[in-house]
């Protein structure tokens, strides 16, 4: 059992009977079928599966970006079903950090401003937003790039900025949707190390990935196929837990 994972208390994530059905001209298409999922705090979970298996859809629901057709989703103690758009956005800003495949940085803002933006929307860390953002940039190794625009950075650097942005409101849960899908292998490794560091620091990290999971110390690997969980594998504790100096 991973000592960083807190068992017995309220889970970080609880999905009960979650289904997602799209209605098309050709009939109903079930993207998720009755998925039950319990993720404890501190878990480092990988969700894998082929294209169309429902991984990203599941992640969208955990981020309150999408809502289930049936079932309930509870994240960080909040049931997301029925939240208004404003309420879910507000919750999302404070409670989860999202890392996207295509970085999703605002091109018109500097790196520093991109990292500060969630604090601006959530109205957190008043009076110390800039220092906090600079601190996070230092920890992802991008202090020197604070004034640059995202377009001036490499893919890997942009993704590290995205990680810093995801952490700026100190969320309980970090969701990463194919975070290395757009990066070369070396850069992917460094981003994965960052995410691993977050898990080692006790954050609940969930990564949707196409890539190989064996080389990354996930505590659990969930496999989806055709919208259903086909395998749920728990692993040993993170090697070098608390020794890798991850990002807080």
């Amino acid at each position: 059992m991973n000592p960083a994972i807190t068992h017995g208390s309220e889970p970080a994530i609880l999905c009960q009977g979650v289904s997602k059905v799209f209605h098309t001209a050709r009939g109903e298409v079930a993207v998720l079928r009755n998925v039950d999922l319990r993720v404890e705090r501190g878990e480092y979970l990988a969700i894998v599966g082929k294209s169309g298996s429902g991984k990203s859809t599941l992640l969208s629901m955990l981020a309150a970006i999408d809502s289930p057709t049936r079932g309930t989703v509870t994240v960080a103690g909040v049931t997301l079903n029925g939240l208004s758009e404003a309420a879910s956005a507000s919750w999302r800003g404070r409670s989860v950090g999202i890392v996207f495949q295509f970085f999703q940085l605002l091109p018109g803002l500097s790196v520093l401003e991109n990292v500060m933006l969630p604090m601006d929307f959530s109205d957190t860390f008043q009076g110390r937003r800039e220092s906090r953002a600079r601190g996070l940039l230092a920890r992802v190794g991008l202090s020197a790039h604070a004034a640059k625009r995202p377009g001036e950075l490499s893919g890997g650097e942009q993704q590290r900025v995205a990680v810093a942005r995801a952490l700026v409101n100190d969320p309980q849960v970090v969701l990463a949707d194919e975070p290395t899908g757009n990066l070369d292998s070396d850069t992917s490794r460094s981003v994965n190390q960052l995410l691993t560091g977050l898990a080692q620091d006790g954050k609940t990290v969930i990564v949707v990935t196409h890539g190989a999971v064996d080389s990354i110390p996930y505590s659990r690997v969930l496999t989806l196929a055709d919208g259903s969980v086909v395998n749920d594998e728990s692993r040993r504790a993170l090697p070098g837990a608390h020794a890798t100096g991850g990002v807080r």
């Binding site: 956005a89 999202i98 996207f100 605002l106 929307f121």
Partner: peptide
């Protein structure tokens, strides 16, 4: 459109 999506994804309410 995409930037609006990004802002909403990182916590901006529709009014913001």
């Amino acid at each position: 459109v995409r930037q609006i999506g990004i802002m909403k994804a990182i916590g901006a309410t529709p009014m913001q």
